[in-house]
Design a protein around this nucleic acid. Structure first.
Lengths: 232, 232
DNA sequence: AAATATAAAAATATTGAAATTTCATTTGTT
DNA sequence: AACAAATGAAATTTCAATATTTTTATATTT
């Protein structure tokens, strides 16, 4: 029998390549080329790209195909502000709803992240540990919101986090940008365990707001996911 | 010439049928049946359903097809809280960024909505004007956020609004539920024109919070849009 | 009668190819 | 030389048919 097709696996693989800049922002994504990497037909890959455009990692224009979502200062700015909103809200909910279980999970996730970030700080470069760090950072931020009882909020946050990561990839190699993380993550945990909502909000804001770049007027990139079908 | 296929139009038509309960929540959506309404192939309709599942109006399970997103108290509750968050934030941005232009648009949108709602209040029933009212209500809430400079926020709000509407359709015919709207919409406009951010936030909350139903533990409906491929 | 196994039917997923549209290049005109 | 129209190649969209999986109905066993 011909090897069975695992569409979810193809989706996951493509998603990973998008958030890690194997397909850098703006790159054209041609189904006919990509089927070489997976043993499936053009149509199946088209479906996968369609789903990825749904979660904002890929842009789709009628009759002219797919592209890895382009990077722009404006988009980065917008994603950052939105992420701050979602993460502040989610963390606040967690503080209210979360019990000892949540505290334990958060402590564990932070311990792992702290270990990896210490290592990176010692080495003075991120590159060799970037995959490990990405996984740990996601786990940390997701755990912070994990006691929030809104499925919608967590779902949306996961999407925005991926889009945010996609915008950041080129910059993550910059050690200078990275260097404050160790302390900031620790501060967030401390405030969360103290159940100090306003302080957690402030520290989440400070942690993320480094990405709030002042944007020039020249950057007027279109943002819509589906140029022709966007619900409105 | 064979009649050309207009995929965006099919998408829009299906979306409309979902938010107006032509396809009631939970209903199975079989591509093979639906192609009867549009002159297209199964494959094209599958793409449309895939996109609709991306914006949360349709659920998709691997190997067992599509369904109009089910209604549940839990989901309704979740959507309401998230909508309050987004609308408060968007309105706040609008107050800060919006100028005379925005005030004029808001006044105009409210005037139309007020006219329709007065009519409904006089008649004592919604049914005959439900389509008009839906359009006017969307325009009002969208305009309220229209001076917000976050494309992401407006985009997400549009999606959540549709999902919210999908959950509400059965209840909108209930006149008792409707009756407070006239005054509430007017109050929101008044506070917005006064540039009173805290008051706008409170009134948006009060306007929407009627939908914050207490939910029982029995309602544990799954919420994920893509059971098999959801990011993260 | 309840539970399990089997077979038929229905629905879904995938494919390869045809029809349509866009893109890049060449050709012809002012 | 500059601009417009035409050509051909590449990419995208759509279709109809095939393979796979799930569901339904029927028969068999406990």
């Amino acid at each position: 029998m011909a090897a069975k097709i695992d569409t979810p696996a193809i989706y996951e693989s493509m998603r990973h390549k998008l958030v890690t800049a194997v397909f850098p922002p703006g790159q054209k994504l041609k189904p006919a080329v990509l089927i070489g990497d997976y043993g499936c037909s053009i149509n199946t890959l088209r479906e996968v790209l369609l789903r990825l455009s749904a979660v904002g990692l890929v842009t789709f224009e009628d009759q002219r195909g797919f592209r890895a979502c382009a990077a722009s200062a404006r988009r980065q700015h917008d994603l950052t502000r939105f992420r701050i909103l979602l993460e502040q809200e989610g963390a606040t909910h967690s503080i209210r709803n979360g019990g000892l279980e949540w505290e334990a999970r958060l402590t564990a996730a932070h311990h792992k992240l702290w270990h990896i970030e210490s290592h990176i700080a010692d080495q003075g470069e991120i590159a060799p540990m970037v995959d490990l760090w990405c996984a740990a950072e996601w786990e940390f931020h997701d755990t912070l919101m994990s006691a929030c009882d809104s499925a919608l909020l967590r779902q949306t946050f996961a999407q925005i986090y991926d889009q945010f990561r996609q915008q950041m990839v080129t910059r993550e190699n910059n050690f200078g940008y990275f260097s404050g993380n160790l302390q900031e993550h620790a501060d967030i945990v401390a405030a969360a365990l103290d159940r100090d909502e306003p302080l957690v909000r402030r520290r989440i804001h400070d942690h993320l707001s480094r990405n709030l770049i002042t944007i020039g007027v020249s950057d007027a990139t279109a943002q819509s996911r589906f140029s022709s079908t966007a619900g409105a």
